[in-house]
Structures are given as structure tokens and as C-alpha cells.
Amino acid sequence: MNPDPIQSEDPKPVVLVVDDSLDVQRLLRARLRSEDLDLICADNGADGVALARARLPAIILLDLDMPDVDGFEVLRALKDDQRTLEIPVIVLSGLQNAQDKVTAFDLGAVDYITKPFDLMELRCRVRAALRLHHLVQMLAQRAQIDGLTGLWNRAYFDSRWKEEFSRAVRYDRPVSLSLLDIDHFKSVNDTYGHPAGDAVLQAFCKVLLRESRHTDIACRYGGEEFALIMPDTAPADAAGVCDRIRAAVAALVWSRHPDRAVTVSAGVAGGVPVDGFTPVQWIEAADEQLYSAKHGGRNRVMVRDTGANPLTLARAG
């Protein structure tokens, strides 16, 4: 997952062909060579389902009439799995089987292509399905993005933090969470107006993305508060990242108010999760550290090793 959704790169879409006929696979490969996509093939239904789960293709071209696990069974398996549920499936079917197409649509297919393929039709339908996939992806992502800053929003944070936390528990790896809050933000809004406040939030986000690492997940937690999830990161390293952010924000020069500095406080909870600790308690621990950073004079980072030694307090900044 890219920490900056707005700037995420768009790799070639993966198109999965599930067809037991090698002739058809070769033909599709040749006919779709001019399209900018990564074509992968499965010879049978079972492999098709496995490959779909492993690669999460943008679209699937699915033959209905296959021995053993046929196309209908593959469709059911795809639609039964949360991961593959949304992948548009185009059914490859003979002209003669109208009922098959109806059944396939009932099972969730989005389109069909009849064999033998008409070249132009094949390309158009593949393009249309790719466009659909792209739009669905974009909508899903938009629902998780904060409009002002372009960071992941609170809803995304909530689900991603749970995921990263349970991953850390499962693999016995450290994870760190930082809550960052812009100091005296209310006074920026009150003194210079809300547009200026928005500009501060946006400038802060740029610094947050620039100074955090590619694997960190930056989210707007609410108002002027931000969350940075740092997978596989011990608390001391997380404190280092946050202090880099803190220093870079403090060093910003505001062209219209060069005498005015904006600072940020951060609270970090990190470590290998111990038994019984919940993701919510972990957020509370980070929040406590943020609270003490504020009370300690702001423009600082406070860290708690919430893992091995839950009582240790460290301090940076």
C-alpha cells in the first residue's frame, strides 16, 4: 500500500485468462499484445481461482466449458471470496449457449465474449472492463482519502491500523503508531482565517509524506491531528522518523508570515505487541504520549515502548 494515495503509481493491469485450451490462451496473448497489460493464464478452474487470489487481477477472462472445475464453479468461488469478489469477470462462451450467459450474469459476470473472437470486439470489451475496474478502484480509494490533504482518511486508518497491529502480533514483529498534532492550530485559524489554516494543514502533509518512509502509512486522524502507522518499526526508530518530521515542520518558512513558526507535537507508542494489548489501547497509549508532549511544552516527540517494557518512557526533541 502506497503511503501517498494521490501519487500512487499505476502499474500495468493484470489480466487473468482461465481457459483449458492452449490455442485460446495463445490467441488471446497475441490479440491483446498491443494493449498495455500483463496477461497471465491458468489451464483449469482450480488453478484459475488460486491465481486470482494470489495476483488479484484487474479483470478475468473466464471460459465456461472446462473439464473438472467449470467456469460456473470458478465464478462462484470468486464471488464467495472477499478478495476476489469485486474483480470484473468476462465470460468466454460459444455463440450457441444463451442460457450459459444468463447463468454467468446471474453469478456476477459483467460481460461476455463469444468464441470465435472478433478482434475489435475482444479489445473493446477488455478495455471497457478495465475502465470499469479502474473506476471502481478509484471510487473505493476516494472513499478512503481525505479531500483536503490527499492522505488516507480516518476510516482507512481504523481498518489499516487493526490490520497492521494483528500482522505485528502474528509475526511477532514491532509496530509503531504516532499521533501528531499541529500546535496552537486554533490560533492560526482564528488569526489568519480558515484558508490559511488549510494551507498549514496541506504544507504539514507534504512534510509528513516527505520525511516519512515509503512503507509508513500517513492518515488524517481528524482536524489537525494525524496518524502515522510505521510497520516493522521499533519505537526508537519511530521516534527518529517523528523527530525528523517535527524538525522539518519547525524549519518551514511561511512566505507571508516569515516571523511565525508552526510546530508539531507527537506521541509514539511502539514495540512488539504483548498479549492482551488491543489496537485501541495502543492508540490510547500514543495519545497519552501526545498529551505529555503538549504538556511538556509542545514541539517535541514523546515515546513509549508499549511492547517488551510497557512502562519505559523515552524522550526526544
Binding site: D20, S21, D23, V24, L27, R31, D63, D65, L92, G94, Q96, K115, P116, F117
Partner: peptide, 21 residues
């Protein structure tokens, strides 16, 4: 014959596809 029916026309042999069909 099912496989020939599906693929032959794609390789430019519609008559083979029909015969297989």
C-alpha cells in the same frame, strides 16, 4: 472438437470451427 470449435476461427479457419461445432 469443443476446443477446435472455440479456437479455429481465431486462427483463420472458420470452416474447421463449424465442422467441429
Amino acid at each position: 472438437v469443443h476446443q477446435l470449435r472455440g479456437a479455429s476461427a481465431g486462427y483463420g479457419y472458420p470452416t474447421i470451427g463449424h465442422a467441429a461445432g
